[in-house]
């Protein structure tokens, strides 16, 4: 336990994080590729076509993991954002800010795949379905956070302001979700339920789970890569960064 604690403290120091993240990334890449290939083969080839939707349903192997990631990443940002605002920890600021574009990308993928799926399902690319609408609002929350972060000249100040906005969003997200559901039932009655509680068969379930793991690992890869660059940028002028840059130019 104590060893873990010191390790965790060490992880907060930029040079150690840089090295550790660099060491971890290739392994995460391997995991991402393995799980993604397994999930895609399982989902696109092995799983049987749906008796109602035919092959069109196969987009869920992308759509569902991305939708899950769009919320998962927000959760990660909320925790690191809280740490950034309260304890002003540099690394927490970086994690929160570098997660935002990845989360926005997953949200965007969710919206695109959702609307592509909507065409065969509902006969239209866009419908004001409660889930789709909430996802759209989530995209705007992500864009607001990214925009606010980049509007500041001092990036640490920007990171703290954007982290504050992340926390506001944590309170707001459930309110948006429930109000949109209420609005939806008020105006057009319940929409088609996509997942009946037990309708999913095992042959469809395991590829989804594999894709969920793959997207998580990909998030790890992407986040660590972005965070390493951000650490270098923020610590420019420090000796350890200078050393890394010198070594890099020597190799080239």
């Amino acid at each position: 336990m104590n060893a873990f604690k010191t390790w965790f403290h060490k992880l907060g120091s930029p040079p150690f994080f840089y090295e550790f993240a660099g060491y971890l990334r290739p392994w995460l890449w391997v995991g991402t590729v393995v799980f993604a290939i397994a999930g895609l083969i399982g989902g696109l080839i092995i799983a049987p076509p749906d008796y109602q939707q035919g092959d069109a349903y196969r987009i869920i192997f992308i759509h569902v993991p991305s939708a899950w990631m769009s919320l998962f990443i927000y959760g990660v940002m909320a925790i690191s954002g809280l740490i950034a605002v309260v304890w002003r920890m540099k690394l927490a600021e970086i994690i929160a800010m570098e997660s935002a574009p990845i989360g926005a990308a997953f949200t965007f993928i969710t919206l695109i795949t959702g609307s592509l799926w909507g065409k065969p399902m509902w006969g239209t690319y866009w419908t004001w379905d409660a889930r789709l609408t909430s996802e759209l609002v989530l995209l705007f929350i992500y864009l607001g956070i990214i925009g606010l972060y980049h509007a500041f000249e001092n990036e640490r100040q920007g990171a703290r302001a954007a982290s504050f906005l992340i926390i506001v969003g944590v309170v707001n997200l459930p309110i948006v979700h429930y109000s949109v559901v209420w609005w939806n039932t008020l105006h057009q009655g319940t929409t088609v339920r996509i997942f009946a509680p037990s309708s999913i068969s095992l042959s469809m379930l395991w590829p989804i789970l594999a894709m969920m793991i793959a997207t998580k690992l990909y998030y790890g890869v992407s986040l660590l890569g972005r965070a390493r660059i951000a650490v270098l940028e923020r610590e420019r002028g420090k000796d350890w960064v200078r050393q890394i840059v010198m070594e890099g130019t020597k190799d080239a």
Binding site: V137, L138, F140, I141, L143, G144, L148, V176, S179, V180
Partner: peptide, 10 residues
């Protein structure tokens, strides 16, 4: 306006 939209939707 971008930041306000999600807050004002409900």
């Amino acid at each position: 306006s971008l930041m306000l939209l999600p807050l004002i939707v409900p």
